[in-house]
Design a protein around this nucleic acid. Structure first.
Lengths: 330, 330
DNA sequence: TTGTACGCGTTATCAT
DNA sequence: ATGATAACGCGTACAA
């Protein structure tokens, strides 16, 4: 079923069929005939041929560091919402297994001519990343990290953790932070700095700063917390970089016989669905991931010339959800 | 940078370059020259043109009902593992938002010529689904449901729930089941039947069979459990179709002052990571999702003629993880 | 308004 | 072993 067949059946040249499909500029008479033939044959133009001819694929590549993350899935949902509305397909590239790093995927997308635009859900941005991004001729948006010279949507990690730490320190005085590697500027460095800033403001000494960082997992949170209470049994407030780390921490505290929040307060970050089923329910902070995903998608549409101009850089806000893992009154 | 340029630079015809890239059959002399030119130009063949010419895209479409599901993400990981090794890209289609149903995506993939094969992570299979699947000329595999006449990888949902129910009924006698819509044959109907079978074997009367089904969410589990203890306060064992439903159920029981497992036992299904951080930790059942994903991918490779022959249908096994949401001794 | 003719970058067929 | 040449399915000047 190609355009030639349709043209023959409708008794017109294939150029006319092409016009029918695109510009318009066809007499009502033939328009009717063509429409009829297309209807009864169920003809659909070949994406590949269109791509070869126009250079446009109708696909945007989305590079994510892992599948099965509450935050990432929410971002992807936001992306889908607006991208599908603009009739774009999403090619999801998962780098979790390290089989192919983000840089490799960036290059693959850039070279292959397989996508019209790229969204990079970023964690760690190495110089190699920046070089590759800089050499990228395709429209692209970085989601989750602030990057100079590139369109990006990120979250106010510094103030987020600063605020939730201040919130906890209203009823605690010996705080510690369970964070992730500093190389992840947003989730690692910025959040950590936010914590330190809050401690400084309250005149509290941060505990366990000398300890190694955690992984982004429940298991990692458990182990980090174990090291923490081992080194600093006096800790009474544990601020965690993510909800999953907090989940691990709470499991650990329970194991060690510490009551939450009576003995130790715990806070998370991200407001994933597990926050509400933990015992006690977790005080955490809600990021508007879905909205930031949508925003990134709109920025990309803009960059691809498919939407009105938008800001080149957006910093998303947040809200604290105070639940039962922190103390109620002063 | 196209094949013509390379050919010119190497002083050969473009046919020779093409042979160099594909079959082989080139003299060592020219082989060397071509390799050199390609090296220094960084030439990469156009995927689009290759596709147009060969009809092969190097992409497999994976249709999933939702992102952010522990089970699905594990399946996708398994898929990625083997598909990437075979140099296939994965085009992930998420139907969560209903914007485009699975059937529509199936048709899109089938028509567009944009993928070489399809993997459908299935939940509900309507007659419309079966019709579309039947009309599909592309190689495809159904993951998560058993479908006559199609390659598929599924889990032994019936015996899984039957076994975990028997496990719980060793220390309980008034069981109820929190399940999902029966239209989902595997997760809905089969699991439910497994539960009923176990009840029959133990001579226990299943409670709350008249109540409406739950959603696949924590929230849904909470609400379903609320209805259950309202209608049948005597219930002492709650078997849930998924871990998330179990999480909601436990939250609800806590709210209503029931001790788990002293007053009521709870079991889940899927062994997601939240199972271990719940209080008490959840007795659940581990499916080998990652393995089933890998198996489905291998079956697809087979169907696409890229791998040795494999079984057309595979039923995956499971293991029960007994933790603290069920009673220990008889 | 319509049709002709060409090119997009490959691979495959056929001589040579 | 190599090189012309014809497709693959489409969009679009250009001419009519």
């Amino acid at each position: 079923m190609d355009i030639n067949t349709i043209a023959a059946m409708a008794g017109v040249s294939r150029a006319t069929v092409s016009r029918f499909l695109n510009d318009g500029y066809v007499s009502d008479e033939k328009r009717r005939r063509i429409a009829e033939v297309i209807e009864e044959t169920g003809y659909v133009p070949s994406r590949q041929a269109q791509t070869l001819r126009t250079g446009k694929t109708g696909v945007v590549g989305v590079i994510i560091p892992k599948i099965n993350s509450a935050s990432i899935s929410r971002m992807v949902t936001g992306l889908s919402d607006v991208l599908e509305k603009a009739r774009y397909q999403i090619l999801l590239a998962n780098t979790a297994n390290e089989a192919m790093s983000e840089v490799d995927y960036l290059k693959l997308f850039a070279d292959g001519g397989s996508v019209d635009g790229i969204i990079l859900v970023a964690t760690v941005l190495t110089p190699e990343h920046l070089r590759t991004l800089g050499a990228l001729s395709l429209p692209h948006v970085v989601l989750g990290q602030r990057v100079e010279g590139h369109r990006c949507v990120y979250h106010d990690d510094f103030h987020a953790v600063r605020d939730i730490t201040l919130h906890a320190l209203a009823n605690g005085s010996r705080p510690a932070y369970l964070g992730v590697m500093e190389e992840d500027v947003a989730a690692g460095h910025d959040r950590h700095e936010g914590f330190l800033s809050a401690c400084a403001e309250r005149g509290a000494t941060p505990l366990g700063e000398e300890l190694p960082r955690s992984e982004f997992t429940i298991e990692g949170g458990y182990l980090a917390c174990e090291r923490l209470i081992d080194a600093h049994p006096e800790v009474d407030t544990v601020v965690c970089a993510t909800d999953r780390i907090a989940a691990g921490a709470m499991a650990c505290l329970r194991e060690y016989g510490r009551e939450v929040p009576a003995d130790v307060q715990v806070t998370g970050l991200g407001d994933s669905d597990i926050a509400q089923v933990m015992t006690p329910t977790l005080t955490t902070l809600h990021y508007h991931f879905r909205t930031s995903g949508a925003e990134a998608a709109r920025m990309l549409l803009d960059a691809m010339g498919k939407a009105e101009d938008r800001a080149q850089r957006v910093c998303m806000s947040y809200e604290i959800f105070s639940r039962n893992s922190t103390r109620r009154k002063a």
